[in-house]
């Protein structure tokens, strides 16, 4: 399904946003694990899509369905040619709807039961076989250990997993992702809404990540200023920087580039 791109001399993978690439002085170093932190309203879901629409990408989407993603991309005029979306959002919605549907009508279900058939079934002596429901976190690590994974992989967003699983389990999975990505020299992007799950977890995530991008919104009078900060860049300390951005009809536009170091 995916063609391995011949590794050339370039040590970076393009984010798909020219100015971001230049802010990063070439892109994301190969094998890097990038954390994208964003506050609501910062448009980080747009940034994710913009990154996703470029190059060979696998996107695990937990908060938007494939349909929504594709229509947003179309609106921005992005034509992802090598994008695969793992639509966790739809799958999850399907499951919860199913459970909810069951719960709301136990009375009705009782009425609909065929008693004779029920008795026969319940005394049949067959152990109950539950339909295998795939564990989403498990699915992540499974996909990652698969050798045929594209260059860019995006998980959008971690918030969903934090609702469903223990933090320790998530961190374990992230480590697996990080390790296999390092070996394959790809780029992994993981998004997390800032302030949702506590500072401690954010700190832990920042320490796991090789690169941390943070999107901030600051209110100035009647307008908002948006900033993209490169908070961490392992082994490239001079690449730490901050840029103001706007989002126009073409996507992210980085305005000024300030170097901190």
């Amino acid at each position: 399904m995916y063609e391995w791109i011949e590794r050339d001399e370039v040590d970076f993978i393009s984010t798909g946003i020219d100015k971001l690439d230049s802010l990063l002085e070439g892109g994301i170093p190969k094998g890097f694990f990038t954390l994208i932190l964003g506050v609501p309203g910062s448009g980080f879901e747009i940034l994710i899509k913009q990154i996703a629409s470029n190059g060979n990408t696998l996107l695990f989407s937990t908060c938007e369905t494939e349909e929504e993603i594709m229509s947003t991309m179309k609106r921005f005029g992005w034509n992802p040619e090598n994008l695969e979306i793992v639509d966790i959002a739809s799958e999850y919605a399907k499951r919860t709807l199913l459970v909810h549907g069951k719960r709301s009508s136990s009375y009705q279900r009782r009425i609909d039961l065929d008693l004779k058939e029920l008795i026969a079934e319940c005394s049949g002596g067959k152990p109950i076989e539950r339909g295998e429901e795939e564990d989403f976190l498990n699915m992540l690590s499974k996909r990652f250990t698969d050798s045929r994974i594209p260059e860019k992989t995006i998980v959008h967003s971690l918030d969903f997993f934090l609702d469903q699983y223990q933090q320790s389990e998530i961190i374990k999975t992230l480590h697996i992702m990080k390790m296999s990505n390092m070996k394959k020299k790809g780029a992994v992007f993981v998004s997390l809404t800032k302030g949702v799950c506590g500072e401690l977890f954010e700190r832990k995530m920042e320490s796991i990540a090789d690169c941390v991008l943070e999107l901030e919104v600051i209110r100035k009078g009647t307008s908002f200023d948006r900033y993209l900060a490169v908070k961490k860049m392992k082994n490239y300390a001079r690449k730490i920087g901050i840029a103001r951005y706007i989002i126009d009809e073409s996507g992210f536009v980085l305005e000024t580039v300030e170097r901190i170091l």
């Binding site: 459970v99 549907g101 069951k102 039961l113 029920l118 079934e121 319940c122 005394s123």
Partner: peptide, 16 residues
């Protein structure tokens, strides 16, 4: 008749 109540739970949609 021996009945597995868990199947009834399931048939009633009581998996919570």
């Amino acid at each position: 008749t021996i009945i597995d109540l868990r199947i009834i739970f399931e048939r009633l949609g009581l998996d919570a």
